[in-house]
Design a protein around this nucleic acid. Structure first.
Length: 724
DNA sequence: TGACGCAAGTTTTTT
DNA sequence: ACTTGCGTCA
């Protein structure tokens, strides 16, 4: 390949050029963080179009998020002429499957107007199932049943084939069967179904499989390490003939095994695609040398990885900053102050990102940022589309499309209040069993029992639905329908109740209406699909001058000049639920690795000495992962006294430890007092202070090896001894 | 039928 | 600390 020849290869290093121009057979690009792998993937697409004379509609590119898909499309639009970028299929597995199933709904055997049931909807269905099967929802928690079912689906296991080893499994199998029936009865598909049904469609209809595999001549996948079994099978079905699969992966960034992702798909790829060309991308363009070295030291202990020798041409950079805070509030204050300092030194707020393991941790950080009047934007959290007012409005729209959706029906039949109570609803549910759905039962009731109280209350609701349905048949688009619903139910007056919260809710509704208005002519079913598959509405506000707050999971694929990783404590990272098995622990380590490698110039690691769980504050030990970062790379800002012995079992969250919090204790020690420590022996108290509502004791031990140490009086094995 | 008060469970991570 | 679900009462 003549490297000066092609403008598409300009500005790429030798490894990247080789990756872009690799054979059109199966290719696996194993790429380190910050190696420009998404850029390589994008250039590869352009390369196939220009050098292999691929038609744009022959390209199928799978990204991990909708955001990544949008960015890739925008990039391609800049690189290519005209509307080429629009003709390509670029999206997540879920989005691509949803569209395909809509088109091939007849062959797949369900309604073209199927609805996508999100996590909340799934939970509602499962609660119904648990009730129907007379199960105890304490022993069989709907959420954990759903979890088991999701894993079964990812492995393409049907309810009938669900492996039953225990009684619990048997219940899961029954719930699974019933869940699928209920879902289909509501013309609903959950996220997993989108994948599973597409695979089934291709397996059962060889002609369709043939059709799509011929059409999608060039299949490219980003973040391949996070594909699950169903996704892998789908790729195999689509590339069975031509084998033009181009996968980009990094095993060290596999962080989604809990939802069925299996990085061993990389090994499967090697077995299933003879002639697979493997290319390593080892040059990092993102991070300073110190950050890269620290990240590599951190990830090194993990087994089963392809060793990559990452290097960068960026300068050495500053050491990482390790900060130990007293509690989460102080940790957050430290972060806020540091950001303010950085800003005064010339950085922008948008250069900074603050990461954490669990969404619950954002709260303390938000409070500190608000207090410091630092603007921030929260990624994830309570998703826009799962807010109550939005879900309610969407339920109305779903009912227009599909009145037999009982979940939506029950959600909004009495929102806003229209005098339909438990009794009426219960009779609708019972009638629904025989008539097929609550909606049909309602129609029946209005006919047969027209004078009853229930019928009187239901009639306006039924009339509204009929009216909207007629509008849709006449060709009304989403914008029209949304406006019609808002007007008919008097939503504004209902939501704007004078409180700030009410105002905020109404603003959310307006935001949704704006989304609908942006796409005139958009069909309802497409709008509802997009809404279910897209997490956030504020994608336009991405350029705002604000600090970004996000979980380590949602940090994947992003980069920031300055990164704070907070809550580096045992029980949090690694998370307490991940301590049981080595592979879960390895995934926690990868999660930390992903976070570290987001940083370009500065990386802060923080942990707290105490952390609150469920409003209960308990001591916290620094994360074991910190021990794997060579001290030479760390600049320590401040050290707090460290517990000599854990007072609690770190592996178990505080709320699970049936340990009543001892009442607040008065000061137990005074200077000059003789004490004995279980480990350090005899000593004398130098100082005892009450700080943050607890007693910190500083003891000088007679055994010179121990020297002077500070403990938390309530937790240290320290006793006063009588003097003789 | 709806409002209110109390008990219980909750926190991994997301398409 | 916070939400959610359930039971009692007007």
């Amino acid at each position: 390949m003549n490297n000066s020849a092609h403008p598409l290869l300009a500005g790429l290093n030798a490894q990247q050029q080789a990756a872009v121009g690799a054979s059109d057979g199966p290719v696996l690009v194993l790429a380190g963080p910050g190696s420009g792998k998404t850029r390589v993937l994008t250039h590869r697409i352009a390369w196939m179009l220009q050098e292999q004379h691929a038609a744009p509609w022959q390209v199928l590119a799978v990204t991990f998020t909708n955001k990544a898909a949008r960015e890739m499309r925008e990039r391609l639009a800049r690189m290519l002429a005209g509307d080429t970028a629009l003709q390509m299929s670029i999206g997540t597995f879920h989005a691509i499957c949803a569209r395909l199933l809509r088109r091939e709904a007849d062959a797949a055997g369900f309604s073209r107007n199927y609805l996508i049931f999100d996590t909340d909807d799934q939970l509602a269905v499962m609660k119904q199932v648990v009730k129907d099967l007379n199960l105890d929802d304490k022993r069989y928690r709907p959420a954990s049943l759903l979890n088991a079912i999701s894993h079964a689906k990812n492995e393409l296991t049907s309810p009938a084939a669900y492996p039953v080893a225990t009684y619990y499994d048997q219940v899961v199998a029954r719930a699974y069967a019933r869940y699928q029936e209920t879902l289909r009865g509501n013309e609903g598909l959950d996220f997993d179904d989108l994948l599973v049904e597409t695979v089934k469609l291709f397996q059962e209809h060889a002609d369709l499989c043939e059709k799509y595999s011929q059409r999608y001549r060039y299949v490219l996948v980003d973040e391949f390490q996070d594909t699950n079994m169903a996704q892998y099978l789908l790729l195999r079905l689509l590339t069975g003939e031509h084998r033009s699969l181009y996968a980009v992966a990094d095993e060290d960034q596999s962080i989604y095994s809990w939802r069925g992702a299996d990085y061993r798909n990389i090994t499967r790829l090697r077995g299933d695609y003879p002639g697979l060309v493997e290319i390593l991308l080892e040059e990092n363009y993102r991070s300073t040398q110190i950050i890269l070295d620290a990240a590599q030291a951190l990830i090194a202990p993990n087994p089963d990885r392809t060793i990559k020798r990452l290097f960068t041409r960026k300068p050495q950079g500053l050491p990482l900053t390790l900060h130990e805070a007293y509690d989460e509030a102080e940790e957050a204050t430290f972060v806020a102050r540091e950001i303010e300092t950085l800003r005064r030194a010339g950085h922008a707020y948008s250069d900074c990102a603050v990461m954490y393991r669990t969404n619950a941790q954002s709260r303390a950080l938000e409070e500190a940022l608000v207090y410091a009047t630092i603007p921030y934007r929260l990624v994830g959290g309570t998703r826009f589309y799962s807010r109550r007012e939005i879900k309610d409005l969407l339920a109305y729209l779903r009912l227009i499309l599909n009145p037999d959706d009982d979940i939506s029906f029950q959600r909004v039949v009495n929102v806003p209040r229209r005098g339909i109570g438990k009794t009426t609803l219960a009779s609708l549910m019972t009638l629904g069993q025989t008539h097929g759905s609550c909606y049909k039962a309602m129609l029946h009731l209005l006919q047969s029992d027209a004078g009853s109280r229930g019928a009187k209350a239901l009639r306006p609701f039924a009339e509204m639905l009929a009216e909207w349905h007629a509008l849709r048949v006449q060709g009304a688009d989403v914008r029209d329908l949304t406006n019609a619903v808002l007007a008919a139910i008097g939503y504004e007056g209902y939501l704007r109740d004078g409180t700030d919260e009410g105002e905020a809710r109404w603003e959310n509704v307006l935001a949704l209406r704006a989304v609908a208005a942006e796409a005139p002519g958009l069909a309802l079913e497409e709008f509802l699909t997009d809404v279910a598959l897209v997490a956030d509405v504020d994608e336009l506000g991405a350029e705002v001058q604000a600090v970004t707050l996000l979980t380590l999971h949602s940090a994947k694929g992003l980069e920031f000049p300055i990164v704070f990783i907070t809550g580096l404590e045992e029980g949090l990272l690694p998370h307490s639920r991940s301590l049981d098995t080595p592979h879960e622990l390895a995934e926690e380590r990868r999660l930390f690795y992903v976070g570290m490698t987001r940083a370009e110039d500065r990386l802060y690691l923080t942990h707290a000495f105490r952390r609150s769980w469920y409003g209960e504050s308990s001591p916290a030990a620094p994360s074991r992962f910190l021990d794997d970062i060579p001290p030479a790379m760390l600049g320590v800002v401040r050290k707090r006294p460290v517990l000599t012995q854990p007072a609690t079992n770190w592996n178990v969250p505080a709320w699970r430890q049936k340990r009543p919090e001892p009442p607040a204790v008065a000061q137990r020690f005074a200077p000059g007092q003789a004490v004995r420590h279980r480990r350090f022996g005899d000593g004398v108290v130098r100082e005892s202070v009450i700080e943050h509502g607890e007693e910190l004791v500083t003891v000088l031990f007679f055994d010179t090896g121990a020297g002077e140490r500070t403990f938390l009086a309530t937790h240290a094995p320290l006793e006063a001894v009588s003097q003789h």
